[in-house]
Design a protein around this nucleic acid. Structure first.
Lengths: 166, 166
DNA sequence: AGCGATTGGTTCAAGCGTCAAGTAAATTGG
DNA sequence: CCAATTTACTTGACGCTTGAACCAATCGCT
């Protein structure tokens, strides 16, 4: 009988071990994926994420504010990154037809090519690190856990791409 | 029949959904925890992690190189952070008795107090976002999945704290 | 219609992380 | 036992992120 097992201030031993391992994944996984993308495609994980969101939406165009939500970034950060990506000709900015304040980021052909060139290596690593070590059942349970966590992290689901059917 | 279900270049629809939700967790969870720590304790997630590692090891002291492994950071990053934390008197650097090249970071009383002050709020949020939305079984499966992923991310287990019994 | 508040986006300074280069101490190997 | 290498760490320059301040367009209210 652990005396403080109900004290909300602490975690039980198992909870603590689970959390510490989660922290290790949380820190190492993005770093590892980012290093691969940087090395093989000259893109940050975040830049890749931005381009890949654009590549998947019909029309390859999104308003910056929506793109910021989808990538969980501040508008400020996105603005800077979009400026850099535009300078590299991977996307361009257009005024939004419907709202004079807004801009849309549009993927260029070169941007599309960059995503297509970067994707296989990235996906291979994702498989290797996450998908392959788990069987189908384990992966679907991991997914379910993430969905529950996302309910708390993002109750309004504002970071969820609208073009995904569940 | 999905024609390319075995093509290692792509993920199946389920795998892809699972991965996209994992990416959302990977980006939002650290940001959310970091914001809380910054707001309530004036510490970065990383700074908290550094201090909390020291607080848990017997002796409250670790060589910088080991501390860098435990926190998955570069030595360079750690060196900078340690300098800042030392300036805030949360830890101090001592030459390592056994090796003239090495330094040990030692938690000060103020540093210990800072961790103890920051921990409850942090733990509460971890509970809220991760532990509470899952039941015991789900959490232990999440943990198991993370262990498998860590086998790939860190086969040598060099980021695993030595004072944890499994 | 008109005025204040809100929304969409940019910019700048300050802070933090990264990479390459540097120093110093220990280890290896001939 | 000395030279070459490796290990432990620090520093400095550069790039990215953040947060506050800013502008401009739109919305909400009366």
């Amino acid at each position: 009988m652990t005396p403080d097992s109900k004290d909300p201030r602490w975690l039980t031993a198992e909870q603590r071990l689970a959390w510490l391992d989660m922290v290790r994944v949380l820190t190492r996984l993005p770093a590892t994926l980012g290093a691969q993308l940087e090395r093989d495609a000259g893109l940050t994980f975040f830049e890749y994420h931005v381009l890949s969101m654009l590549s998947e939406i019909p029309g390859h165009a999104l308003r910056l504010s929506r793109l910021a939500q989808l990538t969980s970034s501040s508008l400020s950060r996105l603005s800077n990154v979009v400026k850099r990506l535009e300078a590299r000709d991977l996307l361009r900015r257009e005024p939004d037809p419907g709202d004079g304040r807004a801009s849309r980021a549009v993927l260029t052909d070169a941007g599309m090519a960059a995503v297509e060139q970067a994707a296989p290596g990235h996906v291979t690593l994702v498989r290797e690190l996450v998908v392959d070590p788990l069987d189908a059942k384990q992966l679907s349970r991991l997914h379910a856990a993430h969905e529950r966590i996302l309910d708390r992290l993002d109750p309004a689901s504002s970071t969820r791409p609208e073009w995904l059917e569940t």
